[in-house]
């Protein structure tokens, strides 16, 4: 059965894909629906949702349109999620591949570094990085990528460890293949599927990390981030709780979508594990 067909066998995977498409659509149409700067003053502050047709989701404590911030925030969340994930997975694969393939002292050294990154609480490292390099969207994205690679490195290493002694790799070696060819041509394509599935976890965590950072007012204040809005809403939490509640739902849906898609991919790639 084709991968696509296997994927669409699971209802939760379909829901995940639909939710993800919804968030993508929001990101894509943000400029079209809300061409103005979402952080600019738009109207009276603290309008409740559904009370004014111009501001469907109301306004926050600075009089900015919440709906506009949600739409534009989808862009930021997805952008940060995807870029940070790519950075983290690339670092993880490289380190994991070399450690797993070569073993010996290369493995020991690389795993020491990985352990160091796992021993230091990732959010504290993130705080340090932001404190040192500042909170622009670029530094925040790169910093999130840097703190979240160790797990994918471990995963890649484990795959490489089990694959490198597999007979087809040994056969490649007896044919005279060079190390680089063995790593990238023979082992990596076989090690990739679980790592790609894991990328969905990394992306979910990346989105959550950015929102937490923004909530603490340590992310880029000049972009419409959902976390920023939750942080702003905290000041008026007692009465106008919707300011914080609405962007939280947006994050929830996005992370849920990414997780469901990842799970669906996993089930499609390992049909053996499904339904037993």
């Amino acid at each position: 059965m084709s991968l696509l067909k296997l994927y669409f066998r699971s209802p939760s995977a379909i829901i995940g894909l639909l939710l993800l498409l919804l968030v993508l659509a929001m990101a894509a149409t943000a400029d079209w629906f809300y061409p103005r700067d979402p952080l600019a003053l738009a109207g009276r502050p603290l309008l409740w949702p559904f009370t004014n047709p111009r501001f469907l989701l109301g306004t926050d404590n600075s009089g900015r349109d919440i709906a506009a911030q949600i739409f534009h925030g989808a862009r930021i969340s997805l952008l940060i999620g995807v870029v940070a994930t790519v950075i983290s997975i690339m670092i993880g694969i490289t380190i994991g591949a070399f450690a797993g393939y070569y073993g010996g002292w290369v493995d020991t050294a690389l795993m020491r570094v990985t352990e160091a990154f796992q021993t230091l609480p990732n959010f504290i490292l993130l705080l340090v990085l932001v404190a040192v390099f500042g909170s622009t969207i670029t530094t925040v994205t790169v910093a999130i990528g840097i703190v979240s690679w160790p797990a994918s490195a471990r995963l890649t290493r484990a795959e490489f460890l089990s694959l490198r002694s597999r007979e087809f790799v040994q056969a490649g070696r007896t044919l005279g293949l060079k190390d680089a060819k063995l790593i990238f041509g023979e082992i990596l394509p076989n090690a990739l599927p679980p790592v790609i599935v894991y990328a969905s976890v990394v992306m979910a965590v990346a989105i959550l990390l950015e929102s937490a950072l923004a909530f603490l007012k340590l992310s880029d204040p000049n972009v419409a981030s959902w976390g920023n809005l939750i942080g702003a809403g905290r000041d008026v939490l007692r009465v106008q709780w919707y300011v914080s509640a609405i962007p939280g739902v947006a994050i929830l849906i996005t992370v849920l979508a990414v997780s469901l898609v990842g799970q669906g991919l996993n089930d499609a790639l390992n049909p053996r594990l499904k339904g037993r």
């Binding site: 040994q170 056969a171 005279g176 076989n190």
Partner: peptide, 18 residues
């Protein structure tokens, strides 16, 4: 290696599935 070659045991594990 072109002068000495090997045939492996496991017909499943010895061929790269991709």
């Amino acid at each position: 290696t072109r002068h000495i070659q090997m045939v492996f045991q496991d017909p499943f594990a010895s061929l790269n599935p991709r």
